Simulated assay, not measured.
Amino acid sequence: MTVEITDRRELHLTEIRNLPSYSRLTPTGVDYVEHVLASPPSRVVGANSLMSMSGAVAARFPYMVDYESSSCERPFVLLSVLDEQVVDLLSQPKQLIVVKHDTRGRRSPTQYTPDYLCIRKNEIALVEAKPLETLQEKAAESTDWSLCEGRWRYRPGDEAAAARGMVFEVFCPEDFNPVYLTNLQYLVRASSTRALDEGIVHVERARRLLESRPDVPPLSVAGPFRVRG
């Protein structure tokens, strides 16, 4: 790792430690987040990196964010890349102990690894990404999984996150318009420096139209702006 990358990483860590969300962590939460941040990234981002077959990046992230599922984890990563509230997104963070409950209410501690640690300016979240079919199957098998007021919940995750001053989120891609999810890759590309260099007027037009009309196929709103593969 070069001196330049190391300096960038240190500045990034300082920014995170000054966030309001970081200040709300419990001591256990601080230890957890610091351990995850200290872990070496799986891939350092190059100067011209944007997206690969298994990862994506925002200019403010110091490394590629991996995803294993193109239909579930990938949409969450791309949405996070576009969300200016997200300061960092780390895949497969440190394992933690959660307490599961069986059908008789008996509690059993078990190891659990979230899909992502999402560090936002105003909150830090442990995230589990699951398709709707899987969530429905889990809810049928265990009371730990439930749909409450339109949102999926995982009780052991909620409890573990709360003990650390965080929140727990279950991301379900079926909660979003499928065409909008398809358009995400174009929105991410439009936010890149390379795209801006090719024509900021067309990029901004495409971005506004894609965000305001998520049901429209991507290339029909881009006008003269096209993203080269």
Rank of each mutant, 00 (worst) to 15 (best):
G165Q: 02
I200T: 01
Y63G: 15
Y63E: 06
Q136D: 07
E4G: 08
V45D: 00
E198C: 08
R107F: 09
R189L: 08
T6H: 11
A56E: 03
A129E: 01
L37H: 10
A58H: 08
A190L: 14
L147Y: 00
V170E: 06
A160Q: 05
P93C: 05
K121A: 05
L209I: 15
V227D: 02
V36T: 00
R120M: 03
N48Q: 03
T2P: 00
L96F: 01
R43W: 02
E128R: 13
I200C: 06
D158A: 09
A129N: 05
T193I: 09
R205V: 04
R24F: 08
E128T: 03
C118H: 00
E159C: 08
E198M: 03
V179Q: 15
G157I: 02
T134Y: 03
P114L: 03
M53P: 11
V221P: 08
R213G: 07
L13G: 04
P131C: 10
S39I: 10
E133L: 14
L184I: 11
L96N: 07
R107G: 07
L37Q: 12
G55Q: 11
G223P: 10
A58W: 10
V167W: 09
A47H: 12
E84A: 13
R226Y: 12
L90M: 11
E4C: 09
Q136R: 15
E10K: 04
V65L: 11
Q136L: 06
L89G: 05
G157Q: 02
N177V: 02
T193S: 14
D115P: 02
G157T: 01
H35F: 08
P75Y: 12
A163W: 10
E204C: 09
V81H: 03
L219C: 09
R194D: 14
S70D: 14
R104N: 09
L132F: 08
P218A: 14
T2A: 10
V3D: 14
R151H: 15
